[in-house]
Each structure stands twice: as structure tokens, then as C-alpha cells.
Computed example of a mutant assay.
Amino acid sequence: MSDWKSRFAVLGAAASAVLAAKALRQLWLFAKLGLLDPPVRKFKGEWALVTGGSEGVGKAVAAELASHGLHVLLVSRSQAKLDAAAAEIRSKHSNVQVRTYAADLTQRHSLDALLGHLAETHTPITVLVANAGGAVPRFASYWDFSDSEEAAMQALNGTACYVLVKRLLPGMVQRGKGSVVAVSSVAHRLGAYLAPYGAEKAKMNALCNALHHELHGSGVTAQAMKPAAAGAAETAAAEGPAGAVAGSGGNGTGAATAGSASPFANTTSPPSSGSSTSDVAAAMASMRPTVTMPAAETAAAALVRSIGRGGPVVTPYWGHSLSEALLLDAWWPPELGKCIEGRVARSLKSSYDARIAAAQAG
């Protein structure tokens, strides 16, 4: 009997040591990402390109980069929203240049035109934030998404990012400096009912992990940033639901989004289930910033602080990182972890369905 007690005691001590080590690592990451000076400051005076930069998290990221002295080029589909975002950033950061370029990033010819514009205007990009994303019309089983809906999700969440990364990286490597940030999402793990979207985010994470090793010693970094949902922008939160909602947005639909983390944005065709992008936007607009759903500015500040720091795949905001660690990471046995993932995905679907129904009824 004493032998069994001794074995259980050793096993318990080992498990406690593993959990303590993971907790210490999490605390170290919080301190490293949140307390040290942002590495992006070394790029003062350089150009940053932010896709989906006309509203929400994308605009907030551009403003945060401008606050560190970087010139910013905002890209999205709506010129009117771009002009408004640029004017707002210029009013707060008059020491930097703010330019805009309207493009539909789901179209390859628009991507090529953007790259041609950079060459013609001699605008070397040192920081790329591939933030535009979304185009998910609803929560649904994979087989219920039409081919055109899946293609739209792949174009915006995948191809748009990959083309810009592949074409802009050689210049960064040649100059020996730069950072690529692909805004991913925790949906690569909570991808149930968002399968095409989650698959692109998983591919994005894998790409940045490979680039992390390929770029070793080049002076260039590549990272996939994994935010979860963000609430309304701080200024919009004070205005009520009519204010802007956090998001990569940027394609002129007005849909709510949180970078690429909240997938309901940039929808290019009406959802076939009866809900609409505006219904989802209204549902998201009813949410207010919390510890686990921060304001757009808070999420953006965390993302910018993490550029060039934390490894190839990073969850930049501490509230999202803590939630992911407690709910999804290997704090639990694998079987229990998978059970938790499934329950969280089903709970999210039920929550969004309820919000959409309420928005439609209202």
C-alpha cells in the first residue's frame, strides 16, 4: 500500500511541477510582451502597410504604429472610410505620413495593382500587417457553405495575405530589416462551424512557423498573431451601437470584426441561412469591452508591442492568452481538452445565433 502511495505522490508532484512550469512560462510571456519596450520602435521613419486599415482593429494598429514614428499606408476597399481613418490618424500623429490605397483584396488583379503602386511610388515596406479578413457569412457545418462562400473566405483570409507576404519579403530580406504580421485567429482551434475560415488561419500559422526558421539571421521576422474577439472601439463604445465596431473591416461592408479574429466581416455575398452581415454587425455592436473582449485600441496596442517578439505564433493580448491557456492549451489531458474545444465551439454558435435572432427581431 505504501508503494502505491509513494507512486501517486511522485506522480502528483510531477504533475504539479509541470503545471507550475507552464504557469511561470505564461507569466514570463505576459511580462515580455507587455512590459518591455516594443521592438517596432527601431523602425521609426520606415513604412508600414496595414490591410483592412480603415476601421476597427486595423485602424487602431495603424494609429499605434504611427505613434511609434512609422509612416503608414492604409489599404481597404472603401476610399471614403480610408480618407476618414487617415484624417483621424494624421490629427493625432502629425509627424508621420499617412497614405491610402483602395483595393478589393479578394481580386488578384487588385493585389498586383497595389504592389505596382508600391513600386511606382518607391515605397519600401518594412512592416506588413496583413489584417484584412473575415467573409464568413454565418456559423454552419462545413458542407453547408457553398463553393462560392468557401472561395471568398479563402481569397480574403488566405490568398490576399500569402501574395503580399511572398512579394514583400524579398525586399525586407535584401534590406536586412522588417517584420511580417499575419493576423490569424484562435479559430484555427475553435474552427467548428467556421471550417473554411479556421483552415486558412491554421495554414497562416504554419506558414509563419516555417518563415520563422527560413528568416533566421536575416534581420526579418514573421509572426502569426492570434487575437480572439475584440469589442467596440473606445470612442465608439461611448457613442453606443451606432459607433464603429472593432475589426479588420476595410472592405466597405460595415460588418463587425476584430481583426481576422472575429470572422464576420467583409462578406461579399448574402448569407443563405437568412441572416445578413448587418445582423451580425448589430449583434457584435451590442458587445462592450471586457477583459476577454478588449477595445480595439487595447487589442491593437498589444499586437504592436508583440511585433518581433514572442515567437512565430503569438497571442498578443494577455486576456486572450490567459483564456486560451486555461481553456485550450495542454493544462488538461488531451481528451478533456478536445471536449472543452467542442463545448466552447457549440456555445459560441448558440450565442451568435441568439444575438442574430435578437438583432433581426429588433
Rank of each mutant, 00 (worst) to 15 (best):
L73D: 07
G56C: 03
V75R: 09
R90A: 11
V127N: 00
Q97S: 12
R7V: 01
V129P: 00
G12K: 08
V129G: 05
L74Q: 08
Q97I: 06
S110R: 05
P38Q: 00
V10C: 01
P124R: 06
V50H: 10
E46Y: 00
T106F: 03
H68Y: 09
I125F: 06
V10R: 11
G133W: 05
V127S: 02
V98Q: 04
V61R: 02
A102I: 07
G53A: 11
W4R: 13
V98D: 03
R41Y: 01
H71R: 11
W47C: 10
G53K: 08
Q79F: 04
D3F: 04
L27R: 14
A135V: 04
V40S: 00
G56Q: 03
V136D: 01
L36W: 13
E88S: 15
A48H: 04
W28K: 13
V57A: 01
L74H: 10
T123A: 08
H117F: 15
A15G: 02
L70G: 00
L73S: 09
T123C: 12
L111F: 13
M1W: 14
H93E: 04
A48Q: 03
A21G: 15
A86F: 05
F43P: 01
E64L: 06
D104E: 11
I125N: 01
Q79L: 14
F30C: 13
W4L: 12
Y101N: 04
G134A: 02
L19W: 13
R99K: 13
L27W: 14
R77H: 11
E88H: 09
G133Y: 06
E55W: 00
E64I: 07
A63W: 09
A21S: 15
Q97R: 14
L73G: 06
T51G: 10
R90C: 10
F30V: 12
V96Q: 06
D104S: 09
G69F: 00
D104L: 05
V57I: 13
L74R: 10
K44D: 07
S78L: 06
G116N: 13
L82Y: 03
K81C: 00
A13G: 07
A9D: 06
A66R: 05
A113E: 15
D3S: 08
G52E: 05
G133V: 00
A48R: 05
A63K: 12
L49F: 12
S67P: 05
S91T: 08
K44E: 14
F43E: 07
V127Q: 03
A87H: 08
L65Y: 00
V96G: 07
D3C: 01
L11K: 04
H93S: 10
W28D: 15
L105R: 10
L128P: 06
A135K: 00
L118N: 09
L27K: 15
D83P: 02
L33D: 08
M1I: 10
V127L: 07
H71F: 09
G134P: 00
